[in-house]
């Protein structure tokens, strides 16, 4: 009798798990498109750098880093326009996507919160860093510690939007991807030149403690940032198409 109750409760739990998985696929099966959109935007921004892949002998960078990372831009104005037109455009496309999914599948995701976060931080950045471009501040060069002025970069609003998207889509993968982008941005943008390693990192691997610099270029870092988003998009697309 008692064992029967346990079996019944276990059956209920198993049925609920199945139902939850089905409902999850139905509600969040569209996360691949915004994830892919964010990844494409990141990768496309490689075109904003004068030397996205090649290692130049010298770098003539300006601040704020409107291209995203602290490196030489083709044109600060083009970088500015890329992010301030490209990001709202991406949000508009994703909003259409979610509206279409809501009509087709009858479920809504808290997408407006994602757009509000991304655009809100972007507007805040525009206000805070609206000053014309100039030379890289001295405190950022040969940095002795992180210098937060470098965080005037359009990559942070993107990271914030990905984190909120992760919450809205109940996706740990997106949450991790957003945190990963934010962490890389904080590391790369608070020192100059690009890829500066603080002293303590070389001490960890038995070095002299003077620090160093990774010889990766902006495009390499952008691929690193976009990679988790591409993986999440691929997994979401594959699980969404799995027969029910």
């Amino acid at each position: 009798m008692v064992q029967g109750s346990a079996d019944e409760a276990a059956e209920t739990l198993a049925a609920l798990k199945q139902l939850r998985e089905r409902a999850h696929r139905r509600a969040h099966g569209g996360a691949w498109l915004p994830a892919l959109g964010f990844a494409v935007l990141l990768l496309a921004s490689a075109a904003l750098y004068r030397h996205p892949l090649a290692q130049p002998t010298s770098v003539d960078a300006t601040h704020p880093f409107w291209a995203g990372l602290p490196d030489e831009q083709v044109s600060p104005l083009a970088s500015y326009l890329f992010w301030f037109v490209g990001t709202p455009l991406l949000f508009a496309v994703v909003a259409l996507w979610y509206a279409w999914r809501a009509r087709r599948h009858g479920v809504r995701v808290a997408w407006p919160l994602v757009a509000a976060t991304g655009l809100g931080v972007l507007v805040l950045l525009a206000v805070l860093a609206a000053v014309p471009v100039g030379p890289v501040p001295e405190e950022l060069v040969f940095a002795t510690g992180p210098h937060w002025a470098g965080l005037s970069t359009p990559l942070l609003p993107l990271a914030a939007a990905v984190i909120v998207l992760g919450r809205a889509e109940h996706s740990r993968g997106l949450l991790a991807a957003g945190i990963w982008i934010a962490a890389l941005t904080v590391w790369l943008c608070t020192s100059f030149p690009l890829g500066h390693l603080p002293g303590w990192t070389s001490v960890l691997v038995g070095g002299s403690g003077l620090g160093g610099q990774l010889s990766l270029r902006p495009a390499h870092y952008l691929v690193l940032m976009a990679l988790p988003l591409l993986v999440v998009a691929a997994v979401n697309l594959a699980t969404g198409r799995r027969p029910r």
Partner: peptide, 22 residues
Amino acid sequence: RLGILTVLSEATECRFAALRDE
């Protein structure tokens, strides 16, 4: 009712017809 709560817990909002079909 447990089923209703479970389906709704996965979405921000769900349409009546979608829940009925599910």
